[in-house]
Nucleic acid binder design. Structure first.
Length: 204
DNA sequence: CATCAGATGTTCT
DNA sequence: GAACATCTGATGG
């Protein structure tokens, strides 16, 4: 049984949390079932001063409200009208930062993930479907049954949380964030991180 | 393989 | 109306 990350882990700058989440395991327990995946790709969104962040310039709408709360809660929103994105809220109350979880490697609950993504049994999936289970922010949410009902969920609880992975040494790649062409100079900031040798990274 | 249209909730214009 | 922290299926190489 691995240790669950506590409140203080999340109460730091998004750039630190984004790096340190790599290799950790995202867990969702639903009705006795446990689904989990090893985080391999993240992006930091640094709040008020980050033109790519939903909370840029202190913008405050019902959607982003949870980003203004304390650290260690989930921020789930809908992108392009049909997909969910899962973030962990970082920094103290009033400082609206977050880390987007972009990709992960399936670890437990393969059957449920296969059903959620393809309405098929895991052993019926081809290679490309297996690699496509959780290699993107929307896919990951679908596979792990993460939707808007989990917006604002306490990640220090026992339903949706992150736990330590094995203490391996990772080769981390730093890159530009994805899908934020509108963000002017911020679109080029190197605030995306991924594990170099993972097959589940969304884009290279 | 690559490219592209189409799906559509929330926010902003 | 338009744009968006995306994915899928169709079409052509």
């Amino acid at each position: 049984m691995m240790k669950r990350l506590g409140r203080e882990f999340y109460n730091r700058d998004s750039l630190i949390v984004a790096r340190e989440l790599l290799g950790k395991v995202l867990v969702h327990e639903i009705g006795g079932q446990k689904v989990s995946a090893r985080i391999v790709e993240t992006e930091a969104y640094r709040g008020i001063e980050d033109k790519a962040a939903h909370s840029y310039s202190g913008k405050r709408t019902p959607r982003v409200e949870v980003m203004y709360g304390g650290p260690g809660f989930s921020y789930v929103f809908i992108v392009y009208g049909m997909h969910y994105c899962f973030n962990v809220v970082t920094r103290e109350e009033g400082n609206p930062q977050a880390v987007l979880i972009r990709a992960a490697e399936p670890r437990e609950g393969f059957e449920l993930m296969a059903q959620n993504r393809f309405k098929k049994s895991y052993h019926q999936l081809n290679k490309s479907q297996i690699l496509g289970l959780t290699n993107g922010p929307g896919k990951l949410c679908r596979a792990l049954s993460i939707d808007k009902s989990l917006n604002g969920e306490d990640l220090c609880g026992s339903k949706l949380y992150v736990e330590e992975g094995n203490q391996e040494s990772l080769s981390i790649v730093t890159a530009k964030r994805v899908g934020i062409d509108y963000a002017e100079e911020a679109k080029d900031y190197p605030w995306r991180f991924y594990i170099e040798d993972s097959k589940y990274v969304s884009v290279r």
